[in-house]
Design a binder for these strands. Structure first.
Length: 571
RNA sequence: CGGAGUAUAGCUCAGCCUGGUAGAGCACUACGUUCGGGACGUAGGGGUCGUAGGUUCAAAUCCUGCUACUCCGACCA
């Protein structure tokens, strides 16, 4: 591609409304332009990257035995009534009516459409399993689109849906998809983790999220430093370490005026924070008799609301008690609560159960007990996993310790089960002529989000640093001064021809009006991994200058050796 | 959906408080100089100041409604 005939569309200044780095760089590099909130046009440079990502996904899906289809963006609302999701999807589902008065929506996902297709086309167990995918535009009317293409309203997704005779077959395909996803993200050149995930409202037994690790990620992920264990922090099981030590200190009631928080207590009395207990009061479930229940976590730990809500004793959704409720039930304010002499039921986090000689509120305003010990001063309450894991916790699989990093969710695989096949009556006959709903799996990758995530993970102060596999161009060919030097022009034209014929994607910066500095910064901004500079002074020594995007030194190479040199570098 | 803010040239923004002639830098066009890390000079083109109304002799500027966009929060396969 000749730069003089190409819409480079780079901009020097950072656009005002971009806050994350990928959004800023995608605008500056001329990859995207905003049309309206959450809606973006893809310019040539952006589209080149997008299509490379799509192609890698397509190849690996095909290799994994999936078949590509293409379904409409516009879907009849009737199908959504049939699955029951029309009523519970809410305003994120953009609905409208056609000229005949029939209801439609823009597809935020395609379970309904594919299940409708499957019920019409699949009739026998002999056809199963089958796995269909598409790479296609979705629309979700997000309440608050942000971060450019990372959370836009219209976006491109690869979504796949598999159909099975039984659950064992679903698990086979699920594993095949898991492996295919690993190959896809490996090939994309991204640092990622497959993470055990909550199945959420969709239900089903198995689910993994694929996260690209990046500072700006919206999710926190815990993973083992010595095994493949990884889970969303919200889900990772917190394990207590060690045995409870024997009591050493006497129980003491102390005046602690002004110590309303754990932080106050720790600083005023020089206590180790791991020897303090936080007492949080929430609504108890009907099954547990209603009223309030206290949850105990160590002073340096945080309550995990998701875990708490799932406990049978705790009301769902989780609701914290008001100050008035606490005072009425306990007779003290929230800053002075503890397990000793507590008139309401309580549950202790596992880590709390192994504490000794600890400090907690006395359930009397302005007083705390110091030197509390289980089974000496009070019985050990029921224990449960109540807290978020923290860095350094033992890994739940027993191997190594947990590290916590932030991640961007770019893929999600689910075992859906028969939710949709039952609702839409997608059944096949088995060997015995019995009609069965097909268990389903679904497997998504946010294609446009992958592009943004790749940038979040690979940039410097000069711009994007693309992984080789998805760079818009592989090589930038840059003459120092085309206008002045017919020799440079002659060599560049020759190299451009040779490199292109060798199968490389080359951006040949033949712009005559731009100076060298502009061309170099443009090539760096759009993140071309390799560059070759052709200069008059090198011609005398029979050299051209090569530099990789990540390097800071030039390598001099003879012009007639550069094609082979690049072949070796790009291997 | 709750809270806050913004809207002036293609982009980044000044002007508004204190009403009277619409500005700068970048980008764009022409010419000249310059030419290995985002050059310089001269001359130009480009804006119904988001929109509708109100106050006023006079509104980018003051007031009100509307719309769009951004940020914080809630929400999110």
């Amino acid at each position: 591609m000749r730069a003089s005939r190409y819409l480079l569309a780079t901009v020097k200044e950072t656009p005002a409304d971009a806050v994350v780095i990928s959004h800023q760089l995608m605008l500056r590099a001329g990859m995207i332009r905003k049309l309206a909130s959450g809606l973006y046009s893809w310019l040539p440079t952006g589209l080149r990257v997008l299509q490379k990502v799509e192609q890698i996904i397509r190849e690996e899906m095909n290799n994994a035995g999936a078949q590509e289809v293409l379904m409409p963006v516009t879907q009849p609302i009737d199908l959504w009534d049939e699955s029951g999701r029309a009523s519970n999807f809410g305003p994120e589902l953009l609905r409208f009516t056609d000229r005949h008065g029939n209801g439609f929506c823009l597809g935020p996902t395609h379970e309904e459409v594919i299940t409708d297709l499957a019920r019409n086309e699949l009739h026998s167990y002999k056809q199963l399993p089958m796995n269909f995918y598409q790479i296609q535009t979705k629309f979700r009317d997000e309440t608050r689109p942000r971060f450019g293409v990372m959370r836009s309203r219209e976006f491109i997704m690869k979504d796949a849906y598999s159909f099975h005779l039984d659950h064992a077959s679903l698990e086979d395909t699920y594993q095949i998809m898991y492996d295919a996803y690993c190959r896809i993200f490996d090939r994309l050149g991204l640092n990622y983790r497959a993470v055990a995930a909550d199945t959420g409202s969709i239900g089903g037994s198995g689910s993994h999220e694929f996260h690209v690790l990046a500072q700006s990620g919206e999710d926190a992920i815990a993973f083992s430093d010595s095994s493949s264990y990884a889970a969303n922090v919200e889900l990772a099981e917190a394990i207590a370490e060690g045995e409870r030590a024997a009591p050493e200190k006497p129980l003491q009631l102390q005046d602690t005026p002004g110590a309303k928080t754990i932080a106050d207590l720790v600083s005023q009395f020089q206590l180790p924070i791991e020897r303090t207990v936080k007492t949080l009061v929430v609504a108890a479930s009907e099954a547990a008799g209603g009223g309030l229940i206290a949850l105990l976590v160590r002073g340096d730990h945080e309550l995990n609301e998701l875990k708490a809500e799932k406990l049978p004793q705790v009301a769902a959704p989780l609701r914290f008690a008001t100050n008035e409720e606490i005072r009425e039930a306990i007779g003290a304010g929230p800053g002075s609560l503890g397990p000793l002499n507590l008139p309401i039921p309580c549950l202790a986090d596992r880590s709390v159960a192994v504490m000794s000689d600890f400090t907690a509120g006395a359930n009397i305003d302005g007083k705390h007990y110091f030197g509390i010990n289980w089974e000496r001063d009070l019985p050990l309450p029921d224990t449960a996993d109540l807290r978020d894991v923290v860095e350094g916790d033992p890994s739940p699989d027993g191997q190594g310790r947990l590290t916590i990093k932030r991640g961007i969710e770019v893929g999600h695989i689910f075992q859906l089960g028969t939710k949709y096949s039952e609702a839409l009556k997608a059944t096949v006959l088995d060997e015995n002529g019995k009609s069965l709903p097909m268990p389903m799996g679904c497997y998504g990758i946010g294609v446009t989000r992958v592009v943004a995530a790749a940038i979040e993970q690979n940039f410097d102060e000069r711009g994007i640093i693309w992984p080789e596999a998805i760079a818009p161009f592989q090589i930038a060919l840059i003459p120092v001064n085309l206008k002045k030097s017919p020799r440079e022009r002659e060599l560049c034209e020759q190299l451009y021809r040779q490199l292109t014929e060798a199968g490389f994607e080359v951006l040949y910066d033949d712009r005559e009006k731009e100076r060298l500095g502009v061309k170099l910064s443009d090539a760096e901004l759009i993140g071309i991994p390799h560059r070759v500079v052709v200069a008059e002074r090198g011609l005398d020594d029979n050299t051209v200058e090569y530099r990789a995007r990540r390097e800071s030194e030039n390598t001099l190479v003879a012009p007639d050796a550069i094609v082979q040199f690049l072949r070796d570098r790009l291997k």
